[in-house]
């Protein structure tokens, strides 16, 4: 087991190096020179050359690459061209918003999707199963931005129940500001007993959250169902039925357990989809997270910021998958002895 974990970590270092290599290449194939972008306006040739020398861009590419990697390893992500602030601090300011949104989404997707999948598998070909199948087929065909706009139209435009966008209303941040402790507004508001803040934060997160959950619920439900159907065919399940073990115990204790390993993999992949989907969803709902930051940085031609945030999002995704891999040992005791 220790050997496997070490191997897995070494592999991870390799992948991270690969990811960094890709962002390095991307930062050098930009149509306009980075130095020109940094100077802005219409710099003279001498100014560009001076800036390039200062930024180390006159060095040979391999040297630039080594500098890039060593900078990153020291947490030096460069400075945003737009604000002049270190990218690292810009990114960490927005990490909480993305983390809050995607984590709540994955929790909801798992809490709703897995029982729904189990129910679908148990009542195969029932009305519920067919509805779930129709949603699964249709769900993956909805563009996230259209779904987001439809929800805005219904809950903001027609019903007026929820705010259009943002993370907290300006009036609330003036009257009863949420004191940042964990950067997760819902938790911060609760911790400080700020009920107005909590209600407002909840209203703001509802629509982006709903969008992400609807987008991914169908897939998780479908995969759970198909795995359960396979497991329910196993002989030990039939035996359990023969022994008169209560049905709910068979479904949730015996059968569901057998699907845990593939389920973990699915959850890991779903989290990746969430992070990717968050880019579009945060952009539409003006949610101040990493995803929207990537898009706005790209629009502003701020490549250190967009690539820095991209690296961070890839890093989160890789960490989640590492955790998933390590959880295999927790879930399946057989793996520990191998």
């Amino acid at each position: 087991m220790v050997k496997y974990v070490v191997q897995r970590l070494i592999l991870m270092v390799g992948v991270v190096l690969g990811v960094v290599t890709i962002t390095f290449i991307l930062s050098r194939v930009l149509p306009s020179s980075p130095a020109e972008l940094m100077l802005g306006g219409r710099p003279t040739v001498e100014q560009i050359a001076a800036a390039e020398a200062e930024m180390g861009l006159d060095q040979p590419l391999p040297v630039q690459y080594i500098n890039y990697v060593s900078d990153l390893s020291q947490g030096e992500f460069g400075r945003s061209l737009r604000t002049g602030q270190p990218v690292l601090s810009e990114v960490s300011d927005r990490l909480g918003a993305t983390f809050e949104l995607t984590t709540l989404a994955i929790v909801l997707v798992v809490l709703v999707g897995i029982p729904l999948g189990v129910l679908s598998a148990v009542r195969r070909n029932s009305m519920l199963d067919n509805v779930a199948r129709a949603i699964a087929v249709g769900g993956v065909a909805i563009p996230s931005f259209i779904l987001a706009m439809a929800l805005q139209l219904i809950f903001y435009g027609a019903l007026g129940w929820l705010p259009l966008q943002g993370r907290v209303a300006p009036i609330v941040s003036l009257d009863s500001p949420i004191l940042p402790i964990t950067q997760l507004y819902l938790i911060d508001a609760l911790l400080t007993g700020n009920w107005d803040g909590f209600r407002d934060a909840l209203a703001h997160i509802a629509l982006p959250l709903l969008t992400l959950v609807i987008l991914l619920l169908a897939t998780v439900t479908r995969i759970t169902r198909n795995m359960m159907v396979e497991v329910l065919k196993e002989e030990y399940i039939r035996t359990a039925f023969a022994y008169g073990v209560p049905k709910s115990s068979i479904y949730y204790r015996h059968a569901l357990k057998a699907t845990l390993i593939p389920m973990l993999t699915v959850i890991g992949l779903t989290y990746g989809n969430l992070l990717g989907g968050a880019v579009i969803v945060e952009f539409i709902f003006d949610w101040p997270g990493l995803g929207a930051f990537v898009v706005f940085s790209i629009i502003a031609n701020d490549y250190p910021a967009s690539l820095g945030a991209t690296l961070f999002l890839a890093g989160i995704y890789l960490s989640v998958n590492l955790i998933v891999d390590l959880l295999y040992f927790v879930v399946d005791p057989r793996l520990r002895t191998q």
Binding site: G18, N273, G276, V294, L313, A314, Y317
Partner: peptide, 11 residues
């Protein structure tokens, strides 16, 4: 290793 859609956006 990139979340889906993020790499296409960066490229």
């Amino acid at each position: 290793a990139f979340p889906p859609l993020l790499l296409p956006i960066a490229i």
